[in-house]
Write a protein that binds this DNA or RNA. Structure first.
Lengths: 215, 215
DNA sequence: CACGACAATATTGTCGACAATCTAGTTGCT
DNA sequence: AGCAACTAGATTGTCGACAATATTGTCGTG
C-alpha cells in the first residue's frame, strides 16, 4: 500500500476509535515516527482527513482533531435523518425476500441484546442494521455522505449509546424500520427511519441539557 | 492570499464555469504556468478539488476533470431533494416577514423572466431563490453538502436549463415553495421543494433518454 | 500497412534541506 | 508579582532536485 493512503487509513481508524481528544494536536513529526512514513505522506493524509471534516489545520499551527459541537452534531444528525430516510425508502423499493429475512434476524437479535442488557452487542447490531439497509438501497451518493457524516459524530455516538434506556426506545424504532422495508412500503420506511433519527436528535438535546446543568 | 488557496479557488471557479471537458487532463506543469504558482500549490489545490469530487487523480497518471454520469447525477439530485427539503422545512420555521417579502419579489421576477423568455435571467433568479431559502434556513451542514453536490452537477445543470419548457414548469414549483415558506408551513415547504427537485430528476431522465435515442 | 520493441520525452511522486512562523522559557524592569 | 522583550527550540511551509512511471515517437520486421 502506498504510504500516504496507509497513513490516512490508519490515522482515520485511530481517530474513529476515539484515540484522540477534541482539539488534540497532531504533530507531523510524531506522526512520521508513529506511522514510519515521510512528512510528505503524513501531510497528504492530514489534508485528506481535513477534507473529511475530522481534522482541522491552521496555517503555521498544524493539525488538530476537530471538535464537533453539539450544535453541529444536531445539524449533522438532521441531515442524516433525511438522507437515511431516502436510503430506507429506496431499500423498501428494492428489498428481496432474502434481504428482508436478514433484516428480521437482526431485529430479533436486537431484542435479545436489549433484554439481556448487552449494550455492546446492541451497538454492533445497530451498525449492522443500518449497513444492511444501505446495502439493500445501493445508493452510492447517499452512502458516501452518511459515511462522511458518521465519522464526524463518533464522539457523540459514544455518549448517546450510554444514555439510559436508549436501546429500549430504539429497538422499537428499528423494528418499525424493518417492518416497513420488509413490507415494501417506501413512505412508511422513510417515516420510520426519520422518526428513529429524530429521536437521536432528541437524545443529543438531552445530553446538551445535562451538560448545561452540570456546568 | 496563500498560493494554494488561490490556485484552488481560481481553478475551481474555472471548472464550475465549464471551462474543461469531462475527463480532460489537468497537467501540473501547465497549471503552474497558468496560475503562476509552484507545483506544491498546484498539487495541494488538486488534492482539495479531488476531495470536492470535481477532479479525479490516479497515481502516476495525473489529474482529470471527473466525469459525472447521468446515473450519478440522478443520485446526487435525489440526495439534494431530501437535503433541500430539510432546508425548506427549516426556512418555513424561521422565516421573517421581510424575508418572506424578498422571496415573493424573487417569485414575481421569475414570472416576468419566463413570460419574456429570458432564460439567463431566470437561471440567475433560480440560483437566488435557492440561496435565499438557504440563508433563511441557516443550516450550515445542509448548506455545505448542497454546495459540494452542486459543484459536481455543473455540466448537467447547463443541459437542463436548456430543456424546452423547463422554466415554465419550474416557475410554478418555485411559487409553491415560496407560498409554503411564507405561510410558515414546514411540511408544505418540504413537500414543495421535494416535488420541485423530483421534477429535476425527471428532467435528467428525459435527457438520458434523448441521449440514448441519439445514439 | 500493422505491430512490437525500444528509446526519448513528459509527467508525477517524493525527498532532504532550508526558510518562515509560532510557542515556551528566560531575563530584566517596575 | 506582573509584564514586556528577547531568545531558543519546535514545528510548519515550501522549494528544487532527483527518481519513478507513463506516454509518445521512431524504427525494424513481416
Amino acid at each position: 500500500m502506498v504510504a500516504d493512503a496507509r497513513v490516512y487509513e490508519e490515522l482515520k481508524a485511530n481517530i474513529l476509535r476515539g484515540d484522540y481528544s477534541p482539539r488534540q494536536r497532531l504533530v507531523e513529526a510524531e506522526l512520521c515516527e508513529e506511522f514510519e512514513a515521510s512528512r510528505f505522506a503524513v501531510r497528504a493524509a492530514l489534508q485528506s482527513l481535513e477534507a473529511d471534516g475530522l481534522v482541522e489545520r491552521q496555517r503555521n499551527r498544524g493539525a488538530r482533531i476537530r471538535e464537533i459541537s453539539l450544535e453541529e452534531a444536531v445539524e449533522i444528525t438532521e441531515v442524516r435523518m433525511v438522507v437515511e430516510g431516502l436510503v430506507a425508502r429506496r431499500a423498501a423499493e428494492r428489498v428481496t425476500d432474502a434481504q428482508a429475512a436478514t433484516l428480521r434476524e437482526i431485529g430479533a437479535a436486537m431484542r435479545v441484546a436489549v433484554a439481556s442488557g448487552d449494550v455492546g452487542a446492541y451497538g454492533d447490531l445497530n451498525v449492522r442494521l443500518h449497513q444492511t439497509v444501505r446495502e439493500i438501497a445501493s445508493h452510492a451518493k447517499a452512502t458516501g455522505i452518511i459515511a462522511r457524516l458518521h465519522g464526524q459524530m463518533i464522539r457523540h455516538q459514544f455518549a448517546m449509546s450510554r444514555l439510559p434506556g436508549r436501546s429500549s426506545v430504539s429497538v422499537v424504532q428499528h423494528e418499525a424500520i424493518i417492518d416497513a422495508i420488509a413490507a415494501r412500503d417506501p413512505d412508511a420506511a422513510e417515516s420510520a427511519m426519520r422518526a428513529h433519527i429524530a429521536s437521536v436528535i432528541e437524545a443529543l438535546r438531552t445530553i446538551a441539557e445535562a451538560d448545561v446543568r452540570r456546568g
